[in-house]
Amino acid sequence: MASVKEYIRERFFPHIWCPGCGHGTVLKSLITAVDQLGLSKNDIVMVSGIGCSSRIAGYVDFHTLHTLHGRALAFATGVKLSKPQLRVMVPMGDGDALAIGGNHFIHAARRNIAMTAIVMNNRIYGMTGGQFSPLSGYGKAATTAPYGNIDHDFDVVQLAKAAGASFVARTTTYHAPQMVEILKQAFTHKGFAVVEILTQCPTYFGRKNKMGEAPDMLEWFKENTTPIGSQAKQKNPSLIERGVFVAEEKAEYCTEYEKVVERAMKGRE
């Protein structure tokens, strides 16, 4: 592959993420996927929201739009529909994508507009210092759940499927080679693609929940996830499945809008 430095804004490194934060691994895998696909940097727009995850946009040498908390997909929809030839990547945190941005997430999936939503799920609000997120889970510890979290989480994959995303996948930072392959599929998918990446926040989620250091959290991903439909899953239903859950052809929004324009122009004659 070409040097990673071809794709980053080197002057901002070392990056701001904490030691062991999984977001850097997502950045690396994303760059690797872009490089392996041979995409042109001028054709890529990365749109991010607010939070630790959103800082990823500052580090890549693409067109980058660092927006508002939760709104990345709404901005990205404007970018994509107005210039459909662009490839749009939208990395978001779990709180960013699914709490404040939950509605935008559902409706971007429903429209099936071609872009890649990457949910960097570390189950916590890191930038503000460790408050529980919608994906922290019942019983977990966080600074805003000092007596234990009573909020239930939900399954991002199930949500994305129900909302109509035509590509849905999940992987972890431990499974970096799989992450690269999944991102490559997502980037070339003609429709709304959701990639959930379980990533570690050793500073807050890990420490608050006594999960050890970053390598221990990766160990957890290794032990508690399994390929979709594996025998292990049948034996132990609590395992989290990894892989591509949905990859289907479905009318894509920008393509459909071209047809609207055609019909509107015909009506004018």
């Binding site: 709104r71 709404a74 901005f75």
Partner: peptide
């Protein structure tokens, strides 16, 4: 909210 965000994205292109 999404409406104004979308037009900002489209203005940038």
């Amino acid at each position: 909210i999404a409406s104004i965000c979308a037009i900002i994205g489209a203005s940038l292109t």
